[in-house]
Structures are given as C-alpha cells and as structure tokens.
Design a binder for these strands. Sequence first.
DNA 1: GTCTATACGGTGATAGAC
DNA 2: GTCTATCACCGTATAGAC
Lengths: 209, 209
Amino acid sequence: MENNKNNTQLKGTEKLIMEAAKKIFGRKGLDGARMQEIADEAGINKALVHYYFRSKDKLFETVVNETFSSFFPKAMSLMSDPSISLFKKIERFVDLYISLIQENPHIPGFMTQELGRGRAERVLDMFKDSGLKPEVFFQQIEQEIKAGTIVPITPVHLIVNMISMCIFPFIARPLLSGFLIMDKKDYDEFLEVRKKELPKFIINSIKKK
Amino acid sequence: MENNKNNTQLKGTEKLIMEAAKKIFGRKGLDGARMQEIADEAGINKALVHYYFRSKDKLFETVVNETFSSFFPKAMSLMSDPSISLFKKIERFVDLYISLIQENPHIPGFMTQELGRGRAERVLDMFKDSGLKPEVFFQQIEQEIKAGTIVPITPVHLIVNMISMCIFPFIARPLLSGFLIMDKKDYDEFLEVRKKELPKFIINSIKKK
DNA sequence: GTCTATACGGTGATAGAC
DNA sequence: GTCTATCACCGTATAGAC
C-alpha cells in the first residue's frame, strides 16, 4: 500500500491506469470522471496518464473497447452455437452473464453510460464483430415452437427479456441494496439464488404445459 | 417557432426551462449537459436559467424530484392495492409502466443517470414517500404459492424480473433500434406487442401447470 | 424579467527538469 | 518514464444595463 512505486513497476503502469480508468469511468462516466481521480486511483501522477494515453477521450475509448471486446464474444458465441439445445442455452447464458458481470462490476456502468448518450454504434459494432449470429438462436426458437415444445413467442422479445433480467439488477444494485437493506453478503447470496431461479423462470414461461 | 418570445410568455419561462432541462439532462446527464444547451433548447438566455434556478445542481435536483415524484406513486399505489388479484396486477403494472415511460422518454435516462452515481438515496426516499407497501404484493405472492395457483418463487426476484423487463428495453433502445434496424414506427409497434406479450410471459412463468 | 458582458474557478493538456 | 509547474480553455455563475 505504501510502496506503490514498486507495484507500479511490477504491474506495468499502463495496465494500472487502465484498471483505475475502468473503475472511475464506470462509476462516473466520461464527463463525470476527472483525470486527477484516475491518476490518484492508479497511484501515479496526472501527467503520466497523458503520457500513455494522449487524451481523456482516447483513454475512455481504449478502456471501453477492451471491456466490451472481452465481454460480448463469450456470451455471444454461446448463443450462436447450434449444437446446444434451447433450454441448456438459456441456463448457461444466465449463469455466464451473471458470473461475468460479478467479476467485472464496471460493465453495467459502461453499458448504460454508453447507451445513455448517442454512442450505441460502437457497442453495436462490437456485437457484430463478436461473431454473433442471432439467426441461429432465432431459428432454434421457431423450431421449438413448431415442434410444440414451447408456446408461441416473438423471438426478439424472448432475448430482450433474458438480457433485461440479467443486466438490470446490476444497474439497479444501489436501489436494491438500499430498498431491501442488503449488505454485500446478502447481495452475493441474492445473485447466487438468481443464477438458479432465473433460468427456471425463463424456461417455465415458454415451456408448453 | 420564430416567435419564441411569445410562447415564453404564454407557457411560463420556468416551465419552459424545466422541460428543456428534462430533455437535456435525460440525454447527457448532469455532467454532460451544458447550461447553454438547456437555454438554447428552451429558446431563452443562459443567464435566465440561473435567474430561476440558482445553480446547475439546483436545477438538476428540481427536475429529478419532479420527474420521480410523478412516476413512482402511479406504479406503486397499484402494487399496494390488496383488492386487485395478482395476475390482474401484473397485467396492469406492465401496461402502466410501459405507457408511462412512452410518454416520458427521459425517465430511463434519469433512472440510470442517478443510479450510475452514488445517488440512489433520493430515489429510495421517493419510493418510500410514494406510499409503497411492498409487503402487500409480497404477501399476495406467498398466498398464491400456498394456494397452489403459482409455483414457488422468491417474491423479490419476481418483482425484480418485472421491473427489469419493463425498464431495460428503454435503456437499451438505441441498441435495439440499431441492431434490429428499427425506425420509430417499428419501435412503437415493438412496444405495443410487448405490452401484450410481457404479461403473458410473466404469468406463464409462475402459473402452475 | 430578460438581456450582454465579464469574472472566476476548474480541468485537460503540455513543457521541461530529472 | 516519472515528476512539478504552468498554460489555455471552457463552463458556471454573477454584475449590471435595459
């Protein structure tokens, strides 16, 4: 803690700045964040941030790119795999999604930060670059409908529902924590329960009776 | 359009500024918004904004308060009404929620803007001031579980699911629009379909087979 | 109440020593 | 590569005329 300079050398300053930037940008957004704050968080000087990443915008760009490009492929390659059954896919999707965000708590912040402004294009591009093939998932749904395994549902709405229920609780976390008076332990437990209940909830809602 | 001054007189400058502020703050957030921008949107001078609302923070505070205090009571009084059945409540909740946000497109922006920072307390206070009685809804759920009408589910997760699926599509609108190439007409249709499908989806997911 | 002009502070970015 | 000191700009807020 006190010999931060040594850590700097060991971990690599650039990496250190990136981590700090993720944290601060995720919390405060591009406009709300201060370069000074990021430097402090990284335990280095403000000028050094500019030395590695020309400008604030460039740093933000870099960090967002890295974040999303590690995020989408994992979730999306799963959805595009035709060899996995629909129900199994739902189960794995929920688990993967929630676990991933658990490990990268700054992601929902970026998500909303980016979407809140007119900056959806980049996110979209990454969706597409990630090899996402929504058709595979859509076809799978329509196949099951025809086969009579699940009730008729518009595929788009199903996927929107799934994503909504995975992401939103993280966005609304402060609200949840305050409203139901959850401490960190309660919240973690809430998420573990959710990992199990959510797939059942989704499958139940489409499975034919 | 060109005789904005007359409109100013008619509509009341204060109201005009509030509307402009809602729009700009909702899009860009507290930090991203510029007083100049708000003044322009309102068709008046920058100094005048300060004349009515001492500071930027005060203006933001005011606008957020007004927004949320019109938003929560409507949705929440419904949930607290013990005379409405669970299924009926779900149907009305979804319709009310989506309609409300349709008419006040800036709400999701504020929602995430506020939650993104450490400012959940105010939102929470409004929840509570709105006369929300979550116990009523929770009891109703547990009653139905005991009666065997619905499958066992943790009440908190059900309500989180409902809210998630109502709000998130609005937050992610730019993503949806781009990804599925929706114009405004397509999007409105998407929402109308959603109003009908979502309650069915939810009820189906908990109804006993 | 509404405008123009201006003061003031904060912040991103650079220069230059080490 | 890392620091200290400094600049230049932009945006909030105020003063003061009308």
